[in-house]
């Protein structure tokens, strides 16, 4: 049996038998799947850039109370003040520090983005697995429900639901989360349909494994890659969704800061033409957050797909 040597690994010279065994053991442990995907992901320049930008956003959101120069809701005397040394990005129309609000706004965007996606990925995975694995009437019912959900004008339904339950951070997250699952469910169902025909799943049945074990340990791990990519893009669109809702006044309720409701001020033409510090920074933040996440998604997809093509 030829031992497959990994050229990237330094092979220590084996002197006695015991250490030779150890070397064999070490050589046997080729890089794991996760390791390989991580390596390919980091080699992807755009993805790496996206990861760094996104990491900065996460840090800023976590350290907001430390980083922000002022309380985001504190009202200073001079409103509409242009950037100065006291207020690096100026103050808004009620006299709050724009930079501080921008920093605290990142918390909102990331919470909605990650929270909503976590909810709908969980729902989508469970429904997709059930539909794909059990087929027949289970599949029929779940997929028809999915069709119904997909035929709603997504944004309008969210708008209506949020206005019913009341706009707040947790409500927006939940509503987006409860409505976003159909795409994931379809994706998972599709993967499951092909994976359950694989011989290793049949082998699991023949070996007498329980159905949950087969579904969660043998099918799900092999269906995970496209879900992960899809979820990444989902975070970006959830952030945009929150910004849009806030812009329309259906998002995070003022005075709490969110990038979306900061943009609302740009509705006035004077702000748009002569006070760019009020709308340019939040706009740029949304752009950067969404771009960095989408780059990460692209990188992740490439890293995973090149592995599969191998």
């Amino acid at each position: 049996m030829a031992m497959k040597l990994n050229p990237n690994r330094n092979v220590p010279e084996a002197a006695d038998l015991t250490s030779k065994e150890a070397v064999l053991e070490e050589l046997g442990r080729e890089e794991s799947y996760l390791h390989m995907v991580t390596r390919r992901f980091l080699k992807h320049k755009m993805a790496f850039f996206g990861l760094i930008v996104f990491a900065i956003f996460v840090l800023v959101a976590l350290l907001a109370p430390v980083l922000a120069p002022y309380d985001p809701n504190k009202i200073f005397g001079d409103f509409d003040a242009s950037p100065s040394s006291a207020h690096l990005l100026g103050t808004d129309q009620v006299g709050r520090d724009v930079l501080s609000r921008l920093i605290f706004g990142s918390q909102v965007s990331l919470t909605v983005g990650v929270g909503a996606v976590a909810i709908y990925v969980a729902i989508g995975i469970v429904l997709g697995l059930l539909a794909g694995y059990f087929g027949k009437w289970v599949d029929m019912i779940i997929m028809r429900i999915t069709d119904v959900f997909m035929s709603f004008p997504y944004f309008m339904v969210i708008l209506v639901l949020v206005s019913i339950v009341g706009p707040s951070l947790s409500n927006i997250t939940t509503v987006i989360g409860l409505l976003g699952w159909p795409a994931i469910a379809r994706l998972v169902r599709g993967s499951v349909l092909s994976i359950k025909e694989m011989d290793y799943v049949k082998a699991g049945v023949a070996l007498g494994y329980s159905t949950p074990k087969i579904i969660f340990q043998h099918i799900l791990p092999n269906a995970l890659a496209p879900i992960l990519v899809n979820a990444t893009f989902g975070v970006a669109s959830a952030i945009i969704m929150e910004a849009s809702l806030s812009f329309l006044g259906m998002g995070v309720r003022p005075p709490a800061a969110s990038w979306g409701n900061m943009l609302t001020e740009a509705e006035s033409i004077t702000v748009l033409s002569s006070q760019p510090w009020l709308w340019f920074p939040p706009g740029l933040m949304i752009l950067l957050a969404v771009l960095s996440i989408n780059f990460m998604g692209d990188g992740l997809r490439d890293a995973i797909e090149s592995q599969q093509a191998k």
Binding site: D199, Y200, A203, A206
Partner: peptide
């Protein structure tokens, strides 16, 4: 099932990757 087993044709699809 402990008494009855099966070996598959395609060794590339019979092992969970």
């Amino acid at each position: 099932r402990t008494d009855l087993q099966i070996i598959f044709q395609d060794p590339y699809s019979s092992l969970n990757p």
